[in-house]
């Protein structure tokens, strides 16, 4: 995973609670065998006025100019400002891949759904939780005529408004380290392979019915 330290860019305000992963990346795009190619269809049903499908390019489609993502002032935004329970619903990691591929490095919200949050950390998309009052304030600033510019310093755990204020945010120290150092998640666990093997041996002894179930199937 790519290390995450400092990033900066404009803020896109998505003023809606309970944004589910079906909206972030609709189901028809999940048929792909790859981890890439989802950015062009981020928020597909909101971004376009017609139905999309795999293989249909954005320029063949009708843009929804009312949708915030299509507003000229937010082009190239790198921070997504959202409301409560962002990323609820389906476990599809494609939602995180789509957000990153589109250009987002960070999602800021008062709360996130559990599976989405976990998927963010696995991919180095930084989820920042801030108090609702702070989020409200950021929405007001981000909705002004001139897009709001932010910079994030993960090691320092700060969000800075360009030419202005600084907000501190909390993040689990260990998860922060994983992001800052861009550690390989599976590699970190495999460093404990001996402990897993030892556990498995004891587990097999205590609960033998959990093992070799395929053989049981063949015998029956």
């Amino acid at each position: 995973m790519k290390a995450f330290t400092n990033e900066q860019g404009a803020v896109l305000p998505l003023d809606r609670a309970n944004v589910d992963t079906d909206q972030i990346i609709p189901k028809q795009y999940l048929k792909s065998l790859r981890r890439t190619g989802f950015g062009a269809n981020l928020f597909d049903a909101w971004r376009f006025l017609d139905e999309g499908d795999i293989g249909v390019t954005p320029n063949e489609r009708q843009l929804n100019h009312e949708f915030v993502l299509n507003e000229p002032r937010y082009q190239g935004a790198r921070f997504l400002l959202a409301r409560d329970n962002f990323g609820c619903g389906s476990s599809r990691e494609h939602a995180v891949w789509a957000l990153q591929e589109f250009g987002f490095c960070c999602v800021i919200a008062p709360s996130f759904a559990d599976i989405f949050l976990s998927n963010c950390f696995k991919n180095g998309l930084l989820p920042i939780v801030l108090k609702t009052e702070t989020i409200d304030e950021l929405f007001l600033l981000a909705q002004e005529e001139q897009a709001l510019e932010l910079s994030v310093d993960l090691p320092a755990q700060t969000l800075c408004l360009t030419g202005g204020r600084t907000f501190e945010f909390a993040i689990d120290a260990n998860r922060k380290r994983t992001l800052v150092e861009g550690l390989d998640d599976i590699g970190m666990t495999l460093a404990h392979a001996a402990a897993i093997e030892a556990f498995e041996t004891g587990h097999r002894r205590a609960m033998p019915w959990l093992f070799d179930k395929g053989r049981a199937l063949e015998e029956k």
Partner: peptide, 11 residues
């Protein structure tokens, strides 16, 4: 998520 599918398969 899919990263965890790989994690569980592997570890």
């Amino acid at each position: 998520g899919t990263s965890d599918v790989e994690h569980v398969l592997t570890t």
